[in-house]
Design a protein around this nucleic acid. Structure first.
Lengths: 210, 210
DNA sequence: CCTAGTTGTAATCAAATGAATACAAGCACA
DNA sequence: TGTGCTTGTATTCATTTGATTACAACTAGG
């Protein structure tokens, strides 16, 4: 139970921690709903330090969102390239990769929020480009047909929405929620629900040792 | 070109105009990103009047979002009940109904924003209940199987996302965007793109006669 | 040890924003 | 006509929040 004293860290390392925290908080509250103070609290640093490190809240979100998009693409690429059981289809591997993303959650939800910013002068283009670039990875690098990519994206949007809604948290209490989740997630349902119930919603978890 | 003088209106009627404006603005910017001042400007009234009419921004959003959910359910119900060409499947009728919703846009996008508020103390429960209630309408009243309802919802989420992204606006310029849109919308593509390019993004359109 | 650069914070500021209040102007009805 | 209710606004306020600045504390290299 020794209180871990907040240590000085190399700037690059601290920066990573701040981005991780930002991913969680932006994933929960969205761009407009997030304060730099909330990100600072989640990262365990002062609000001033957040702003000075990234220059502005806009720049912080741009970097957080860009990294999230890149991460998603990387996971899909890796899933396509992995040579596990030969009889496993690409779709199955993509599906399993997606569950890993669910565990990280903030990444998916930050991107969902990015995708609601089409109207924004700066983030709108970023959002469109991010979305289309993910589509291109699925089509050109993973090798899905446009129809397959569309279906995969659609299901992904639905899952992301249900995650943001915290439907897994009430799946056991609400029969309809459980039914729909099972229908969408099939075999992965239990794993996702387990991941969700243990998920620490507030970024402050980062500060606590746990 | 006679400048239409802002007229006094019965409170109930003005209220409807404010809710229409709120639907457009919340649909674009989301709850946190919307100011009561922006809604007021879109409705052509003072900010003070917006707040006094609804009590608070929270209450305004709650009412706007609830109406949007109800409207979606009503459209789906009606589509299921309509007896057009007997050979048209329920899915086809639902799809056509959805295009009508696309024309109104603010409704769909406001609900999308509601669905990102799962974390919110007040709107989280509203969002979960709204989402599940739409699912129930599809399953219990329209008569879809859980699998069919899931697929319909998933495709709807993807379309809503693409609408919020304003992908139709760049469909002609960006080949990938056009391909994906066509893939998702099929026959309705041209209609949706046409609806989108003429769509007035800023709620201020309401003030102008047009 | 000591000093120069790096890591980090406390204090403060100005702008934005939701809300409240007092007041103006139209309408209905005696 | 005038009086009381409804519709609507201008003004003002307290809070929140992104950003700035000055300063403190740690650390490495000589």
């Amino acid at each position: 139970m020794t209180e871990t004293r907040s240590q000085r860290l190399p700037a690059a390392e601290r920066r990573e921690l701040m981005l991780d925290a930002a991913s969680i908080v932006f994933g929960e509250r969205g761009y407009a709903g997030t304060t730099t103070d909330a990100v600072a609290a989640a990262a365990g640093v002062s609000q001033a330090y957040i702003v000075r490190t990234f220059g502005s809240k806009e720049a912080l979100f741009a970097e957080t969102a860009s990294r999230a998009v890149s991460r998603i693409k990387a996971v899909f690429r890796q899933a396509a390239a992995s040579e596990s059981a030969a009889e496993e289809s690409v779709e199955e591997r993509l599906g399993r990769a997606y569950v890993d993303l669910v565990a990280d959650r903030g990444i998916l939800l930050t991107v969902m929020h990015l995708l609601t910013l089409g109207h924004h002068d700066k983030f709108g283009p970023l959002a469109r480009e991010g979305f289309l670039s993910i589509y291109r990875v699925l089509r050109d690098e993973v090798g899905l047909t446009p129809q397959e990519a569309e279906a995969f994206l659609a299901k992904g949007m639905l899952i992301n929405t249900m995650l943001g809604l915290r439907l897994p948290d009430i799946a056991t209490a609400q029969a309809d929620a459980g039914e729909l989740l099972t229908c969408v997630l099939e075999g992965a349902t239990d794993e996702v629900v387990a991941l969700s119930t243990k998920y620490q919603p507030l970024g402050q978890a980062i500060r606590r040792g746990d």
